[in-house]
Computed example of a mutant assay.
Amino acid sequence: MNEIRIGMIGLGGMARWHIEQFGKVPGVRITALCDVSAEAVQELGDKLGISPEHRYDSYEALIADGEVDGVVSVTPNNTHAAILKGCIAAGKPLFAEKPLTRTFEEAEEVLELYRHNPIPLMINFSYRNGAAFQHARKFIQAGRLGKINHLFVQYLQEWGAPPSNTPYVWRFDEKVTGTGTLGDLGSHMIDLSQYLLGDRISELQAMLKTIVPERSDPLTGQPYDVLVDDFACFNARFNEGAIGVFQTSRNAIGSGNQHEVTLYGDQGTLHISTLNDQQLIWTHPKENGVKETITELIAVPPEEGLNPWQSFRELIRGNTVSEFASLEEGFNNQAVLEAVVRASQSGGIVSVASLSAKPQ
Rank of each mutant, 00 (worst) to 15 (best):
E323R: 15
P301S: 03
A61M: 09
L182V: 07
H188K: 03
G221I: 08
V71I: 14
P120I: 05
T181N: 07
T179Y: 05
A206S: 05
K209M: 10
N333W: 09
A236S: 08
G160S: 08
F22K: 00
R5M: 11
L192F: 10
T103R: 09
G348A: 08
N276M: 05
D35V: 06
C233S: 14
S73G: 12
M8R: 01
E304R: 02
E174H: 04
G268F: 12
Y168H: 01
W159I: 08
V290W: 00
I253Y: 13
R55V: 07
L185N: 05
P218C: 02
H116D: 09
Q310A: 12
S255V: 05
E214W: 00
R250S: 15
T79G: 06
G198H: 06
A40Q: 06
V245S: 10
V341R: 01
A90S: 15
E292R: 01
E304T: 04
G244Q: 03
I316Y: 03
E329Q: 14
H259P: 04
E303T: 00
P162M: 12
Y195M: 09
A299D: 14
R171G: 13
A252V: 09
V74H: 04
N165K: 06
I4S: 02
A90W: 03
I253K: 07
S187G: 11
V340I: 07
I123L: 13
G160P: 07
E60K: 12
S126V: 07
T75L: 04
L306D: 02
S351P: 01
Q258F: 11
A15R: 00
F139Q: 01
I243A: 14
F312G: 00
M8N: 04
G221Y: 09
G23E: 12
V340D: 04
G10H: 00
V321S: 10
T181A: 14
P99I: 02
L44D: 10
K138E: 13
F139R: 01
P213W: 10
Q360R: 15
K175Y: 05
L145Y: 12
S326F: 02
E39A: 13
S73Y: 01
F324V: 06
G186C: 07
S249L: 08
V74Y: 11
D191P: 07
S311H: 06
Y195R: 09
F139T: 01
I211K: 11
L84K: 02
L151N: 02
N239P: 14
G86S: 10
E287W: 04
P167Q: 00
D57P: 01
G130I: 06
L62M: 05
S51I: 15
G265A: 11
M8V: 07
L219Y: 11
S273W: 14
Y127W: 15
E287H: 08
G146W: 05
C34M: 14
S354Q: 10
F95I: 04
R200Q: 10
T293I: 07
L111P: 02
N2Q: 11
W17S: 15
G268L: 09
L94K: 00
P218N: 06
N332I: 09
A15W: 00
I281T: 12
D65C: 07
N149C: 06
V261N: 03
E20D: 13
V110G: 05
E60S: 08
Q267D: 15
